[in-house]
Amino acid sequence: MSIERRNFPQFFITAPAPCPYLPGMLERKVFTHLVGADARGLNTQLSQGGFRRSQNIAYRPACEGCQACVSVRVPVNTFTQSRSFRRVMERNADLQSQVVKPKASSEHYSLFRGYIDARHGDGGMADMTVLDFAAMVDDSFVDNRLVEYRLAGEDGALIAAVLIDILGDGISMIYSFYEPDFASRSLGTYMILDNIERVRRLGLPYLYLGYWVNGSRKMDYKARFMPQERLTPNGWDLVRR
């Protein structure tokens, strides 16, 4: 996918650092800033070119001798739920979802903190403070939203949430987190399935899932959502199984 070069931003490359997905490997990233009036359109163009967003930065891997990170997106109009996916939807039929403005609250941070401590205590987000979390959610020049998932009833407890970007051709799932005590609900999978349906309702073609990393167990789940398109040097290739 070619990127329009009008008002083309300046790109930078990070220094090599240990890869968080493949032991013994080093990662480098090429990145640019998503700021100003062009940020929304540029976010769509760069997503089509395999970039991901983190706050006001768009980045993609630029590792020497390694192409394990592959950008993937689900063409929602041809996606069909497997039997296991239908069971996930049934287990979560009692949840109520709501799309809200991306404004971090103590409730959101408490959910995020519990998720990180239980699931990713040694990861790159383990040291995020409430101010760091607020910056991740609040500070953006793009069109983004939070999707909240609450238990039905008077309590309406928040048990999952995902930060999404609205793109010109779909939705990009930026970061999801959920209550680890509800692991049996497969909430991570459910949020992907729910947003596939959200993209369909918007009349747009794609749900962007970020990077599938060949050889990383952490990212194996993304390969389950078939058919999907994977970005290659020759463009987006459709993979059915």
Score class of each variant (00 low, 15 high):
Ile3Val: 15
Ile3Tyr: 04
Pro9Gly: 01
Phe11Asp: 09
Ile13Asn: 07
Leu22Glu: 02
Leu22Val: 02
Gly24Lys: 13
Met25His: 12
Glu27Gly: 13
Lys29Gln: 15
Phe31Cys: 09
Thr32Ser: 14
His33Glu: 14
Ala37Val: 13
Asp38Trp: 12
Arg40Thr: 15
Leu46Gln: 10
Gly49Ile: 13
Arg53Pro: 06
Asn56Arg: 15
Ala58Pro: 09
Ala58Asp: 03
Tyr59Phe: 15
Pro61Ile: 09
Cys69Gly: 02
Ser71Glu: 09
Ser71Tyr: 06
Val72Ser: 04
Phe79Thr: 02
Ser82Asn: 04
Ser82Gly: 10
Phe85Gly: 02
Arg86Leu: 13
Arg87Gln: 09
Glu90Ser: 12
Asn92Trp: 01
Gln98His: 00
Val99Asn: 02
Lys103Val: 01
Ala104Asn: 02
Ala104Glu: 00
Ser106Pro: 06
Tyr109Ala: 00
Tyr109Met: 01
Leu111Ser: 06
Phe112Ser: 15
Phe112Asn: 15
Arg113Cys: 02
Tyr115Ser: 14
Tyr115Asn: 14
His120Asn: 11
Asp122Val: 12
Met128Leu: 10
Val130Thr: 07
Met136Ile: 06
Asp138Thr: 10
Asp138Val: 11
Asp139Leu: 06
Arg150Thr: 06
Glu154Gln: 04
Glu154Thr: 03
Leu158Ile: 12
Leu158Pro: 13
Asp165Met: 12
Ile166Phe: 09
Asp169Gln: 04
Gly170Ile: 03
Ser172Met: 02
Met173Thr: 11
Tyr175Cys: 05
Tyr175Phe: 15
Ala183Pro: 00
Ser184Glu: 06
Ile192Val: 15
Leu193Trp: 14
Arg198Gly: 02
Arg198Pro: 02
Val199Ser: 13
Arg201Ser: 12
Leu202Glu: 08
Gly203His: 01
Pro205Ile: 12
Leu207Thr: 03
Leu209Tyr: 05
Tyr211Leu: 13
Lys218Trp: 05
Asp220Cys: 10
Lys222Tyr: 04
Ala223Met: 08
Arg224Ser: 15
Met226Cys: 11
Met226Gln: 15
Met226Trp: 07
Thr232Pro: 11
Pro233Val: 14
Asn234Phe: 08
Gly235His: 13
Asp237Glu: 13
Arg240Pro: 01
